[in-house]
Computed example of a mutant assay.
Amino acid sequence: MLSIDALTKTFGRNTAVDKVSFTVEKPAMIGIIGRSGAGKSTLLRMINRLTDASSGQIMFEGREVTGLKAAEKRAWQSDCAMIFQQFNLVPRMDVVSNVLHGTLNRRSTLATMFNLYPDADIHRAIEILDRLGIADHAPKRAEALSGGQQQRVAIARALMQDPKIVLADEPIASLDPMNAQLVMDDLRRIHEEDGRTVIANLHTLDTARRYCNRVIGMLHGRVVFDGTPEQLTTGVARDIYGADASFSEESTSTSIETLDRGTVRALREAEAAV
């Protein structure tokens, strides 16, 4: 499905990503972990083609991605949606319009200039927001929402692209534990219910173990671990983070609370009532 072969990115004399290779043969929920500067964000940006690789190859369903240009590159970026840590919404624009921006790659320049959207796209945007529990916030400005709600708007925008792959770059790094759980629950449901591959850069071990069925560890731009959450022992984590025996997993914990479905549903209903 997705094949990364010796993917490398250099900035002058510095190598941010060093000959990374891995294959995703079927839809999966993959967490990429590692300390700051390990190359995680650069790797995702290369996969999405926001950043060009210095060398190496990306293949998806038999299509060579690294050499795509113009319209073909934009088509790939629709198939491979990106979610950012800082949401990248238009703060003064209403929520549903932000979600509809997920269709920009397939709309004409004229329609984009005049902010014209087909009724079918508007209805679909509302349906996606409803699925994520924030449809009642559709007419509000994005800046009026909490951080967790804004991140779910960003997820809705990505789903408007109907992507085959969702890339999430530190999606919960700026969220409190409760909102972190809501966002990660949504990403996991997108993988399980839609059959989409989700690749998320995560800075915490507990989140990777809880939500991902595959974990990739990076250190100094290289893959140093690729396995199951069960194989991610404290010793392995110590190697991934380049730490000594004093390493404590608590320093990489989100303290995400384990809330049952009823509690999560009540939280979403409370949000909608605000």
Results as ranks from 00 to 15, higher is better:
47 I>K: 02
47 I>A: 02
47 I>T: 04
48 N>I: 02
48 N>K: 12
48 N>P: 04
48 N>C: 09
48 N>W: 02
49 R>W: 06
49 R>P: 00
50 L>T: 06
51 T>L: 09
52 D>G: 13
52 D>P: 10
53 A>I: 01
53 A>H: 03
54 S>R: 03
54 S>C: 09
54 S>V: 00
55 S>I: 05
55 S>K: 09
55 S>R: 12
55 S>L: 11
57 Q>W: 01
57 Q>L: 07
57 Q>A: 10
57 Q>E: 08
58 I>D: 03
58 I>W: 03
59 M>Y: 00
60 F>P: 10
60 F>N: 11
61 E>W: 00
61 E>G: 00
61 E>Y: 00
61 E>I: 05
62 G>S: 07
62 G>N: 07
62 G>C: 11
62 G>V: 07
62 G>Q: 07
62 G>M: 11
63 R>T: 00
63 R>N: 01
63 R>I: 01
64 E>R: 12
64 E>T: 12
64 E>L: 11
64 E>F: 13
65 V>S: 02
65 V>H: 01
66 T>K: 04
66 T>M: 02
67 G>L: 11
67 G>Q: 13
68 L>D: 06
70 A>S: 15
70 A>T: 14
70 A>H: 15
71 A>I: 15
71 A>R: 15
73 K>A: 14
73 K>G: 07
73 K>T: 09
74 R>M: 15
74 R>D: 14
75 A>M: 06
75 A>S: 09
76 W>R: 04
76 W>I: 09
76 W>F: 13
77 Q>M: 10
78 S>P: 06
78 S>L: 15
79 D>L: 12
79 D>H: 13
80 C>H: 11
80 C>M: 07
80 C>R: 05
81 A>S: 13
81 A>F: 01
81 A>G: 00
82 M>T: 02
82 M>R: 02
83 I>L: 07
84 F>Y: 14
84 F>S: 06
84 F>W: 11
85 Q>S: 05
85 Q>K: 08
86 Q>S: 13
87 F>G: 08
87 F>L: 12
87 F>T: 08
88 N>T: 09
88 N>E: 12
88 N>R: 15
88 N>K: 15
89 L>A: 12
89 L>S: 12
90 V>D: 06
91 P>L: 11
91 P>Y: 08
92 R>V: 13
92 R>Y: 14
92 R>T: 14
93 M>I: 00
93 M>L: 13
94 D>F: 08
94 D>G: 03
94 D>N: 14
96 V>W: 06
96 V>E: 01
97 S>A: 09
98 N>H: 02
99 V>L: 02
99 V>C: 00
99 V>N: 02
99 V>M: 05
